[in-house]
């Protein structure tokens, strides 16, 4: 269950998307998210989906991996779908324009509700898959290099950009380790008779404390050990540091940029002039 959260899990293959500049990939993701939120109709969202499918194919990420990202937030997706299915009430309902397909007390399903919740689910899935594509195709180190480079103008106002980037990369690196650890602690507590997966919500919350406290302790211990290991390897802050990996633009970057620019432009046009409004 815990392994399903796929963030920080780089998928090591060589591909077009893997070789894009991490700085641009971050900007692309931001642009892509903007496009998704600008999309107000299925045609626009479909264009977003098409670009994403092409990107996933170019990235050579297996379908299972991609779906795992969605599985991680399956609860959220279902929750969104159900709530919108039952409670979505567009203006037309109030004016009596939209036929109600099914109704029981305050729960009401309309055709518009079905369409709208499908739209939201699709949007949510695109968001998650898009974000996980960034972490699948970019090593945490490249990602933080990218963020560091994007934030570097802030050095002018003495913002500790390097420290922030290092904190992020270490946090990313420790996610899989702490997930393993969580699983181990949960098993250990279960072996001692703790009921973590059963009982009502309140009881489960209480049980989870018995997992969180050892986890926190272990994280602090690891932080201590890592600090020592970094010290032993001459870490002294960001001032005199050099970087082994230098970010360089390649021929791939303009191609990806044009595709994304076209997508955003298209979606923006449809935002202003809807083709098939919902």
């Amino acid at each position: 269950m815990l392994k399903d959260v796929s963030f920080g899990q780089y998928y090591p293959v060589k591909s077009f998307v893997h070789n894009l500049d991490p700085r641009l990939k971050i900007l692309f993701l931001i642009g892509y998210i903007v496009a998704i939120f600008l999309a107000r109709e299925f045609l626009a969202l479909g264009a977003c989906a098409l670009v994403l499918i092409v990107a996933v194919l170019c990235a050579r990420i297996p379908l299972g991996k991609v779906l795992r990202a969605v599985k991680g937030i399956l609860f959220l997706v279902i929750f969104t779908a159900v709530v919108n299915l039952f409670f979505h009430s567009g203006d037309k309902v109030y004016w009596g324009g939209e036929p109600v397909l099914w109704q029981w007390k305050i729960f009401r399903i309309t055709q518009e509700g079905i369409i709208f919740s499908a739209f939201l689910v699709l949007r949510l899935c695109l968001l998650v898959i898009g974000s996980s594509l960034l972490t699948y195709t970019t090593t945490p180190v490249a990602l933080t290099d990218g963020i560091e480079s994007l934030l570097s103008p802030l050095k002018l106002i003495r913002f500790p950009v390097h420290a922030l980037a290092l904190i992020m990369s270490i946090a990313l690196r420790f996610i899989p380790i702490l997930l393993d650890e969580t699983e181990r602690i949960m098993n250990a507590q279960k072996a001692r008779g703790a009921c973590i997966d059963s009982g009502n919500l309140f009881r489960r919350m209480k049980a989870i404390v018995s997992v969180l406290i050892p986890l926190l302790l272990s994280a602090i211990r690891r932080a201590d050990e890592l600090g020592e290991a970094m010290d032993a390897r001459c870490y002294s802050g960001g001032n005199a540091r050099t970087k082994y990996k230098k970010l360089r633009l390649t021929w791939r970057d303009p191609i990806a940029f044009s595709v994304l620019a076209a997508l955003i432009a298209g979606v923006a046009v449809m935002f202003v002039f809807p083709v098939f409004p919902i």
Partner: peptide
């Protein structure tokens, strides 16, 4: 080299982690 294999590496990729010390002392690329 310390005891715990899981809490010494700074980076996620082998070469990035091996580079860490050398980067720290400001070695050329």
């Amino acid at each position: 080299v310390f005891q715990n294999p899981d809490s010494q590496a700074v980076a996620s990729i082998v070469e990035d982690d091996v580079a860490f010390g050398a980067e720290n002392v400001g070695m050329p690329r």
